[in-house]
Design a protein around this nucleic acid. Structure first.
Length: 116
RNA sequence: CGAGUUAGCCAGACAAUCGCUGCUGUUUUACAGGAGAGGAAAGUCCGGGCUCCUCGAGGCAAGGUGCCAGGUAAUCCCUGGGGGGCGUGAGCCUACGGAAAGUGCAGCAGAGAGCAGACCGCCGACAUCGUCGGUAAGGGUGAAAGGGUGCGGUAAGAGCGCACCGCAUCAGUGGUAACACGUGAUGGCAAGGUAAACCCCACCUGGAGCAAGACCAAAUAGGAAUCCGUUCGGCGUGCCUCGCGUUGGAUUCGGGUAGGUCGCUUGAGCAUAACGGUGACGUUAUGCCUAGAUGAAUGAUUGUCCACGACAGAACCCGGCUUAUCGGCUAACUCAAAUU
């Protein structure tokens, strides 16, 4: 399964204005909106230079989360926006995977309820 | 072996599976093959290419550079050399033009700090608890007090005179030059510091930047032109007419938003060799193609090994500088000790 990026500004705004589900922790905030016509997830990242100062951290943040979603989560397909809040302490360790699992479990539970 | 100096190199390795972005091929939309971050990609501090704008020439202003010669597309960079400073040494550091063109600035101490200066001392005169004058050799102050040593000289002293040393100017010699030598002559001789203070002198410099710029180009609204219509026509309501409501219609053009394409990687390119040069570098020959994303590609998992992995992610492209950086390796040289 592949994961593609949100193509344009208007797609971001659609998710911001009426998200179907939210999940957050100290490091990031996730918004999601169901997209029944899609055949895959579409992910957009908001990684501001102010919050994640080094380019290495911004790249790694995107890669780790994209890979996590690609390998672990399937239907219902949706548009997902992830906003970084700070540099995660455990970004380079497996502990960050546990945090992601916890957040996305909650998120997809909500999405499945709405979808059903 | 120890301590150090300089120059350079590497930046976990290998394999498997699943993914991502270009490229090439094909049985063309899915497979296969092959490629895919750095020494600093960073800071944006300099220089250049490239693009657009401006532009007759020169000057002023403003900013920059600042020992000499060379290298280069160019530089505030690099190389070689000179002066000064630091180090036992290999080596390292150095905004290193001009202070009799002018202006400004300098705490405290001290008698005096800038066409020097008498507090103590020394000498002389008047005269005798002192006053006036001479004196920069001695003391004291200070970061700094007007060349040093010796002899002569003197009331005491003083480049006042002389010798040697130092200094300055001119000539000479060597060097492309900066500069050096001390060879000769001259001068009794320095009344300073600061120009990353203003300034003077010499040289250099148009502005903006790939979100530069070029092209294609929806929808909506508005604009211009032409033609048609302006008792008309179109649309809605309605089976139709009347009626009611609403509205000019068609074509073309230009600007240009969303979006897209190009710019975008073959280049002052890299590697090897030869030749020239002390060197930076240059010339020639042969070979190679080595990221081009654009909400933005390099990741994840597993296994094995080790020294257990730092700083950190291309965004038009190069040449430098500066800053960050776990560790490891190589070469040349220096010092110290020991041995021969």
């Amino acid at each position: 399964m592949t994961v593609i990026s949100l193509p344009s500004r208007s797609d971001f705004d659609a998710v911001f204005e009426s998200p179907d589900a939210k999940a957050s922790n100290r490091d990031f905030l996730v918004l999601a909106k169901l997209n029944r016509s899609a055949s895959t997830h579409r992910i957009g990242f908001v990684t501001s230079k102010k919050k994640l100062r080094r380019a290495v951290d911004r790249n790694r943040f995107r890669r780790v989360i994209r890979e996590h979603v690609r390998s672990r989560w399937t239907s219902p397909y949706s548009d997902i926006v992830i906003i970084a809040r700070q540099v995660p302490d455990n970004l380079k360790t497996p502990l960050f995977q546990d945090e992601l699992t916890r957040a996305f479990t909650k998120l997809f539970k909500r999405l499945e309820n709405i979808d059903a």
